[in-house]
Design a protein around this nucleic acid. Structure first.
Lengths: 167, 167
DNA sequence: ACCGATAGGAAACAATGTAACACTATCCGC
DNA sequence: GCGGATAGTGTTACATTGTTTCCTATCGGT
C-alpha cells in the first residue's frame, strides 16, 4: 500500500505560500508558549525569513536579508541564537549536509524526529517525510553492529516531483 | 537472520592498528592506480593521519598534526586538495554532521555508497555498515513522496559496543 | 620538444559558527 | 513592591571550516 499523505510533502510549484508561513508562525508561538519561552520579535523575524520558502537557507543569508529590510545589521550571533531557539522549538530544522536551515511546515512530533529529509538538487526545495520502516532498519543494522543508536540523520539528495518532470 | 559481519565494524578497544593503516594505504594505492592517478607523498601523509585512528578528524587537525611532524606547515588548501582526491578514491569518507573525515577501513564497493555511518558520541569512533534494507526503505519513502533519490546520507549517533558496555 | 592532464605551493579571502561580557526584561515567590 | 532567577539581546572579538586565484612543476604520450 502506498501510504497516502495528508498533505503532499512537496508543495505545488506556484502554491499560495501565505498560509504556510502563517501556520508555521502559529505553531512556533504555541511551541514556545508550551516551554515557557517567548517567540520574540527577533525570533519571529528570523523564522519569517526561514519560512519564506521551502528551501534551506544559510544563517548568513538570513542575516543578509534582514539587513536589507531593516537598516540596522545585526551580529551573526543574534541569528544563531534565534536559530538555536527555533531549532529547540522544533519549528526549524538544520540540513546538515549543507549547513543550512529550513522551516518545518508540518505539525508533527519532533521528539525522536524519525523523519527523513528530501532535498532537491535542482530547485533546492526541502521536504520531510516519515519513514518508520527506514528508521527501524537503520536501528536494526546499527544494533547488529553492536551499536546503541540514539539519533539517526537521514538526508536524501535527488529530484523533487516538479523537477523530475521537467528533466 | 542476524546478518553476520566478516569483520566487526567496531574495532576492539586495544586492537593492533598497524594492519588497518597498512591495508588502507594499499587499497588507496590500488584505487588511485585504477583511475590513472597517483598516491603522492602529500596524499599519503594526509591519508596516514586520517587512517591513524578510527575517529573522524577535522581538516585543520590533520594540518596541525602534519605541522608538528614536519617542521614546515602547509596551507589548508593542500590538505583539502589531498582530502578531495582521497574522497574521490573512496578511501576516505566525510562525516557531514561533524565536518570531519574518516578512513574507510574496508574494501567495499563505493559506487552507490549504500552504507550507513555509525559515530560513537562518547569515544568518537566511526564505523560503516551495509544496510540495504534501510536504503530500500528510504528510497521507498522518497518515491512515495514523488521524490527521485540519487544519494542518501545516513549518519547515526549513539554508543559503540565498548562504550555502551562501559556506560 | 611539445602538449594536455595531473599535482601542488602561496597568499588572500569567504563562509560558517562561538566565546565572553554586559546589560535589560520578565516572571515568580515572598 | 522587592529581590533573585531565568530568559533574551547587543557588542566585540575570535575560531573553525573551506575556497579562489595565480602560478609552477611533473609526468606520459606523441
Amino acid at each position: 500500500m502506498r501510504r497516502p499523505q495528508s498533505a503532499p510533502p512537496f508543495p505545488a510549484p506556484g502554491h499560495d505560500h501565505g498560509p504556510c508561513v502563517k501556520e508555521t508562525l502559529a505553531r512556533a508561538a504555541e511551541a514556545f508558549e508550551a516551554n515557557g519561552l517567548r517567540l520574540t520579535p527577533l525570533r519571529r523575524r528570523v523564522l519569517e525569513e526561514v519560512a519564506a520558502s521551502h528551501h534551506a537557507i544559510g544563517a548568513y543569508e538570513i542575516l543578509e536579508r534582514l539587513a536589507r529590510k531593516e537598516t540596522t545589521r545585526m551580529a551573526p550571533i543574534s541569528v544563531y541564537r534565534a536559530l538555536e531557539a527555533l531549532l529547540d522549538a522544533g519549528v526549524v530544522h538544520r540540513l546538515e549536509s549543507r549547513n543550512a536551515y529550513f522551516a518545518c511546515h508540518a505539525r508533527h512530533d519532533h521528539s525522536g524526529a524519525r523523519r527523513i529529509v528530501l532535498a532537491c538538487e535542482r530547485c533546492a526545495t526541502v521536504a520531510e517525510v516519515a519513514a518508520p520502516v527506514a528508521f527501524d532498519a537503520i536501528d536494526g543494522a546499527a544494533s547488529d553492529a553492536g551499536f546503541r543508536s540514539t539519533r539517526a540523520l537521514v538526508e536524501v539528495a535527488g529530484l523533487c516531483t516538479a523537477c523530475a518532470a521537467a528533466a
